[in-house]
Nucleic acid binder design. Structure first.
Lengths: 343, 343
DNA sequence: TATTTAATTTTACGCGCGTAAAGTTTTGCT
DNA sequence: AGCAAAACTTTACGCGCGTAAAATTAAATA
């Protein structure tokens, strides 16, 4: 490989026979130069391994091509999956994803925003922690950098929100459970870290009442993101106490359901649809592991692909769109019933 | 908040009454200036919200404070958990973690290394994809930037390796299974993405032979990182075919075991230690979800905390240590038997 | 072919900070 | 108090690139 060592754009200008300002234009947007010169540049580029210094670029441009992705808890496969989708779309859109997890800690969430500020991102995609988030800090951040929120909607925060349609999804599942058996009891955390939980409870109650049934809600104690553990211990307790009004349990999310199923198993309760089953259990989210629970978990799936695609789209519009809209868009993506063995 | 707006170090020098070169020294290493001036700087810092421009810093320093973390598959909670630990230690060591996932794709792994190169990292912590990795590309990268590998050891690649002691761990589990019941059959993927699998098979065979038992290995077909799915389908097939030589199955890793347990459940096979159980199943890794399988999974746990701590330690030594050692260190951390209900 | 328009080159400055060199002040030590 | 060492200030240059302005060249239009 006789590839020359070219250190900077000056040298590459000499090497390629194109002036430096034109090269600068090219690297910023290859389509902004004449096709002929573009060809010439790219042919030269193939002959050496020059690559513009990203620090020098970012220092001098007011706006970088960085896009921050902030997630509340990356060790949760749900968010890992979301992050994966978002990363892919961000790269496809020509930006550079920077993935940060808050690991469930509001302080770290603030730190993450601070360190994002330092890299002057073109925009940020953020799933806030929710209840424990420092709202003021996030608002201040969103005022400075274009931010699209996903997963958890903090009313009024961010330029847009793209998320799951909890109301539609809850209706879907409650109606299915009622139709195929008896009305469900709702099982959730009393203090859920994620704000979707509240929307789900309310949608559950509304749907149940609309269908002429009495809603029953069992609330698990416990704080934080060890949700399976809470589902297990509190679900176990509730089962032993006979706290469930019906034998059909609709868990607020799949992680809770995973813990709950483990508890039911330990107590020797057969879960499923058959006549020989003591319980029916449904979840919500279509968590990556919900296909491998025992029994496999009937759930409402969030449309990962649509949500991730849409929120990247929104952000790109926000960044590249000339006219700035003042209205905060809220986009809700419908869920789908995913029927498996547990209900 | 009458905080002044200070744009650069020049202005902050005037504001704080400290010369710019000294400030530069301070920001590079707060301990390199006299305590008195350090106090003075920090008191001024509290009075405004100046923060050095990270791009300008990185452009001019030969070495940044960036530390890359490359993981083969972030949607795997095992790696998510590893990444979480590593991030924390990297921050504690005064560096800036940049987390990248290869999402199971060797091309993306190469891309990740390329984009890491662009940010001139002080060092990189890398868990290679393994079998599918482009060895030459990784070697070339390691030759240029200090790299400590973890999880998957590619012999000779990287300045050091920190990982799990597969041999010790396998001995531990095989001995336990033999002692507490019958000798296990080993269940693994024929073409595992991760190189640990081969070490585990060999250790299984060695230990079985040392104990005077005949090793039995069942190999699941299938490629890629959908390991639970492979464990489920291939495990199901093997169970139906009566392929297991014994009723004790030791799975090469917990994800495989999670799928296998789901298959056993579906087939109505009771898993556990009791006389009423048709199978005993053990895993390997102490995957975050192994506490919530049905039944809960007996496994050999990797010492997450020790591995993550140790590999960050190694990298920091490598970066900051004056004398460069030419010997490639290989550090293996012992596993622990984690007994639960499945075996 | 002449003319308008668009693209490129030349020249030059600035971004914010690292860092070297020489001079000055402060500190620690006897 | 005197002195050497350490820390600091002043001055000055460089990093690699963005970008503005004026001059030049190429392309598109008539």
């Amino acid at each position: 490989m006789g590839k020359q060592k070219i250190q900077n754009m000056e040298e590459f200008a000499e090497f390629s026979g194109i002036s430096r300002p034109t090269l600068s234009k090219y690297f910023n947007d290859p389509d902004s130069v004449r096709p002929k010169t573009r060809d010439k540049i790219e042919r030269s580029l193939a002959k050496c391994n020059y690559q513009p210094n990203i620090f020098a670029i970012n220092q001098n441009r007011k706006l970088t091509k960085n896009v921050g992705i902030v997630v509340p808890y990356l060790a949760d496969p749900f968010f890992a999956e979301m992050a994966r989708g978002i990363e892919t779309f961000v790269i496809a859109a020509g930006y550079r994803p920077i993935l940060l997890s808050s690991h469930g800690d509001p302080e770290l969430e603030k730190d993450n925003l601070a360190s994002l500020r330092a890299i002057k991102p073109a925009g940020v995609l953020m799933a806030p922690l929710g209840r424990s988030s420092d709202r003021a800090a996030i608002e201040a951040f969103c005022a400075d950098v274009p931010t699209v929120c996903f997963d958890a909607n903090i009313e009024g925060v961010g330029a847009a929100f793209v998320g799951h349609n909890n109301v539609q999804a809850m209706e879907l599942m409650v109606e299915y459970l009622v139709r195929s058996g008896e009305p469900p009891t709702f099982f959730e955390m009393r203090n859920p870290p994620n704000p979707n939980a509240n929307k789900r409870r309310m949608a559950y109650i509304d749907t149940m009442e609309a269908l002429g049934h009495t809603p029953h809600v069992i609330q698990a104690e416990g704080e934080g993101w060890k949700i399976e553990e809470i589902g297990f211990h509190e679900g176990r307790k509730a089962l032993i106490d006979g706290a469930f009004a019906t034998k059909t349990v609709f868990c607020s999310n799949d992680r809770l359901a995973i813990g709950f199923l483990a508890a039911a198993y330990e107590l020797g309760l057969r879960v499923g649809l058959g006549a020989d089953c003591a319980l029916r259990v449904a979840g919500h989210d279509n968590h990556p592991f919900s296909s491998f629970t025992c029994p496999t978990l009937t759930t409402v799936s969030q449309d990962y692909a649509a949500i991730t695609a849409r929120c990247v789209e929104m952000l790109v519009e926000l960044i590249e769109g000339q006219q700035q809209q003042n209205t905060r868009a809220t986009i809700l993506i419908d869920g789908k019933l995913t029927m498996r063995a547990s209900a």
